[in-house]
Design a binder for these strands. Structure first.
Lengths: 160, 160
DNA sequence: CCCTTTGACCATCACTGACATTTACCATTA
DNA sequence: TAATGGTAAATGTCAGTGATGGTCAAAGGG
């Protein structure tokens, strides 16, 4: 039932986890050959599974001896995220929330239950609030962002 | 005389019962083909027979390799929560939230941390949202209710 | 009348291929 | 030698296609 996308994600994830520095360098073409898929498929996996909101940084270089380097961002502190949220407020989409929560969960800042609880408040609850005068778009994203912010501050107060 | 609806219900039910984790993952299209019916018929069965109120949680993913996962949840002493849910449209004041949360915590439905998270989302986050066009009073209380409702549904899915 | 069933239309996700861009390396030449 | 330029080797981007599942109103049936 796993898609190719999922398989490649797990493959890269294992490489990172088994690396001392939480970094892995690959070659897009090689990896694509191994999985017998289009090279751009690798970009798709990187974009959807290894985004900043999920806690990863991807750098690359083109041309001869080019590479793609995927690095896991260490988070010992949540403050930077809170700060970032303030600027990003109007654009915080639902998928961003999901990605961020999966990151916090992976890093053991929150439990799975807590993650689901937060998702309920920020995604499900805000799905149909037009009748309360909160249309989809920037405004709803802002509200979502405020909720997330307060919850993060709460988490912050617990430490790790 | 059994309707198609009933037949599909029993089919899914058997799959769940014969699964160790009380979970089953299906593909809507495939199942619809097997029973030679419209795909949306599956949604109807899920909505009417496998709702939260009947003790099931349904998750799904669209697109390639999409799926529908149906999970049976342990139900124990959920009646009070359901009762609360049924009048979720009521105007929830901040103090109501506090009362409910302390009750949920006392009854071990949620942990202290979870309680604090919920409080952050329903009280702190909604303190200063005037600039988003959500003035204090009825409107804000309604929004609070929506958030609580979704979080309660989530808690419900955990059982106790 | 209420419950079932369907179909049309929508939303989302995975995957690909054509085309663009960047880089290393090497041959040619003033 | 230094500058030029061409070629091969990499990666990036983006729009398009197919495969799913979701929603809702309307028709059907007991």
């Amino acid at each position: 039932m796993y898609s190719l996308c999922d398989t490649i994600e797990r493959y890269i994830m294992r490489l990172i986890e088994s690396s001392p520095d939480q970094v892995v360098t690959i070659q897009r073409g090689k990896l694509a050959s191994e999985f017998d898929c289009a090279p751009s498929q690798i970009n798709y996996v990187l974009a959807t599974r290894f985004s900043v909101f999920r806690g990863f940084i991807v750098e690359s270089r083109r041309g001869g001896s080019g590479y793609v380097r995927i690095r896991k961002i260490p988070i010992d502190r949540i403050e930077p995220i809170v700060a970032y949220l303030e600027e990003y407020e109007r654009q915080l989409k639902e998928s961003d929330v999901e990605d961020l929560l999966s990151w916090l969960e992976r890093e053991n800042f929150i439990t799975h239950r807590e993650s689901e609880l937060m998702k309920a408040a920020m995604i499900k609850a805000l799905e149909k609030v037009d009748d309360l005068g909160i249309p989809p778009g920037a405004e709803r994203n802002q509200l979502r962002s405020r909720i997330l912010r307060e919850m993060l501050l709460q988490i912050l107060s617990w430490g790790k």
